[in-house]
Amino acid sequence: MNPPLAVIRYLAELDAALAARGAPDRDQIVTQVGEHITQALGDVPNRSDAEINTEIAAVLADLGDPLRIADEAAPRASEPSGNPAAPSATPVAYLPVPPKPALLTRSWIPAVALGLWAVGAAGVAAPLLLLAVSSGDGIPGATLLLGVVLNVPLVASAVLVCCSPLFRLLGRWIWLLCVPVALFAESVTVHSGVQHSPYPLDAAIAWTVILACPILTIYAVVMITIRAYRRTQNLPAPVPPPLAQPATP
């Protein structure tokens, strides 16, 4: 059984209050209060959530204010004072603060992937766009070199998307394929020279392809990013360790 949120909060408050007063035996007290709660709640099956919540509230009320417990635990005049800032001597059997999610499931991962992708895609697409609007004299070598260098963030975004569980299989494939496919379509269009065709219909098709490819690609990547971000909001809470962990008496 995982401890309910109210119990985790109560124990966290108690732990903080004990730490603030430099109470010795801080871990021991928090652990034993946790055991008290476990025993008081019992292990009765078929209870509704409402009944359990009512019972938890009653048990916590009987235990009393964490500050009052911490006052009782504070070193007396004849006792050496503990160090309030000192970390727990032994791992507490409860996790008052829920652990952070894994690195690749943090909420900023989709934004970073999108940013890397945008920089890389812009750098790679820029030479092609220049070529499309140029009169056929070619593009400066520096621009071409920049486009090649900016492949690095594009590759980094692809690696991030492949490694992060926030991105599902279909999204990964679209993410990986949309840039090369779009670039291929554009380059074929540009190099075939149809945009300079004397026939208006051919030029219209060419410009449609040239404009539609990046727009559709950007739309797809943004939608994948939004979905990945929404998944970070719906991730299940990290599972705290079991309520009672008898280790050593």
Binding site: L14, A23, P24, D25, Q28, I29, Q32, V33, E35, H36, Q39, A40, D62, L63, G64, D65, P66, R68, I69, A70, E72, A73
Partner: peptide, 27 residues
């Protein structure tokens, strides 16, 4: 055990201010 002590000292007779204050004492 803790809960039993707390009930005997806090419910049966009002010696404990609250059940939680028993544990610093036991420590």
């Amino acid at each position: 055990y803790g809960l039993e002590l707390a009930r005997r000292l806090g419910t049966d007779v009002p010696l404990l201010a609250s059940e939680g204050t028993l544990y610093p004492l036991l420590a």
